[in-house]
Amino acid sequence: MEPREIHAEYLGAMLARDADRFADLFALDGVFEAPLVPPGGAIPRRVAGREEIRKALTDHYRRSTAVLREVNKERSRRILHTTSDPEVFIAELDVVFGSPCDGPDDAAVMSLVQIFRTRQGHITLMRDYFTAEATASSS
């Protein structure tokens, strides 16, 4: 899969809160990191291995009591950057929450940067840079 396809699948899995679909994007030895999440946060800072990623996300979704907010896809922004290394790409996201009818003052925005390293169409390392406050208000 190409970077755009990998990232589209990743976003679909996240929006659907589908831990199986999310984990299947990773290589067997893939690693998920969220370096800005404090130790003991709602999601682990680092999870290694496809099955451990599956378990961590399943547990997170099961524990999460936050109300899911609608993602306004029309107002959200996604930019993918390829690099000189064909196995690495970077995603910039501004995710806007709220219905398309909400005014600018009603919407909440979560900005994040993601770095993906891939091999043969699977994620080997994904670093997701966002603040812990964002997960508390939007997950």
Score class of each variant (00 low, 15 high):
Val37Gln: 15
Val31Thr: 15
Pro104Ser: 02
Val37Asn: 13
Thr124Ser: 06
Phe32Val: 06
Leu112Gly: 01
Ser138Met: 13
Thr131Ser: 10
Lys73Pro: 05
Gly98His: 10
Asp24Ala: 06
Met126Phe: 09
Asp85Pro: 13
Arg119Asp: 09
Gly98Ala: 09
Leu80Lys: 12
Pro39Glu: 12
Cys101Gly: 10
Ser64Pro: 02
Glu92Lys: 07
Asp20Tyr: 06
Gly103Ala: 10
Gly103Ser: 11
Phe130Tyr: 11
Arg69Ala: 03
Leu80Ile: 13
Ile43Val: 04
Arg45Ala: 01
Phe32Glu: 14
Thr135Val: 07
Met14Gln: 02
Glu51Trp: 05
Arg63Asn: 09
Thr83Gln: 07
Gly30Ile: 06
His60Lys: 03
Ala108Glu: 14
Leu80Ser: 12
Ser137Met: 13
Asp128Ala: 05
Arg119Trp: 06
Asn72Ser: 13
Arg46Pro: 06
Ala91Phe: 13
Ala8Cys: 01
Glu9Ile: 01
Leu68Thr: 00
Pro86Asp: 11
Glu52Arg: 05
Gly12Met: 02
Gly121Arg: 06
Val37Thr: 14
Asp18Trp: 10
Thr131Glu: 09
Glu74His: 15
Asp94Pro: 13
Pro38Lys: 15
Ile53Cys: 10
Ser138Cys: 10
Arg77Asn: 08
Glu9Val: 01
Arg46Leu: 10
Thr135Phe: 05
Gly30Ala: 08
Ser111Ala: 14
Pro44Gly: 07
Asp29Gln: 11
Glu87Asp: 15
Phe32Trp: 15
Ser137Asp: 13
Thr58Trp: 02
Gly41Arg: 03
Leu125Pro: 15
Val95Leu: 02
Ala107Asn: 15
Ala136Tyr: 14
Ala13Thr: 03
Ala56Met: 04
Asp18Cys: 07
Val71Pro: 08
Arg54Ile: 02
Gly30Gln: 10
Tyr129Val: 05
Thr135Met: 09
